[in-house]
Simulated assay, not measured.
Amino acid sequence: MKYFTIAELCKSETADQLGIDNRCKKEHVVNMTALVDNVLDPLREAYGKPITVNSGFRCPALNKAVKGSVTSDHMNGCAADITGGSLKENKRLFYLIQELGLPFDQLIDEKHFSWVHVSYRKEGNRGEVKAL
């Protein structure tokens, strides 16, 4: 983990505002570390500038509060919503992940590149690309 921290991946303004305890467990740390090591750090290295994590780990209460999927990889520490700071930069991140051949389970253009969702599992990555 060179460019990202566990604290950054667990930080949530929504959780803070709603008084939700979004602390992660050891198994979540293992999954977040794998996400960073296999996707986020290599992406940041190639991108050459900071990437912001809008949403990483979500406990079930936080996931419900943000109306996340009941099967969201965020709850396992396997997903992050990221941004380069603009629609143009988010689009660049989306395609760079694919160009680099980084492993992922899901890569989603969220709301016309308002942010990019990327998930990584230690086993069984589907390489699914879609837009929502």
Rank of each mutant, 00 (worst) to 15 (best):
K2Y: 05
F4Q: 07
F4G: 08
T5C: 08
A7P: 07
L9E: 02
K11G: 00
D16W: 00
G19M: 10
G19V: 11
D21Q: 11
L35T: 12
V36A: 14
N38C: 12
V39G: 05
P42G: 07
E45D: 14
K49A: 12
K49G: 05
T52N: 04
V53L: 09
V53F: 07
V53G: 00
N54R: 12
S55R: 13
F57P: 03
R58E: 02
R58F: 01
A61F: 02
A61N: 10
N63S: 15
A65N: 11
V66R: 09
K67A: 07
S69P: 00
S69N: 14
V70F: 10
V70T: 14
G77Q: 03
C78A: 13
A79R: 09
A79E: 08
A79C: 08
A80E: 01
A80T: 07
D81Q: 03
I82E: 09
I82S: 06
T83E: 05
G84K: 08
S86P: 13
S86H: 12
K88I: 11
R92V: 01
I97S: 01
I97E: 04
Q98T: 10
Q98Y: 04
L100P: 15
P103Y: 13
F104W: 02
D105E: 10
D109Y: 06
K111R: 13
K111H: 08
S114I: 00
W115V: 01
V116I: 15
V118P: 02
Y120P: 03
R126S: 13
R126H: 01
E128I: 11
V129M: 07
A131H: 11
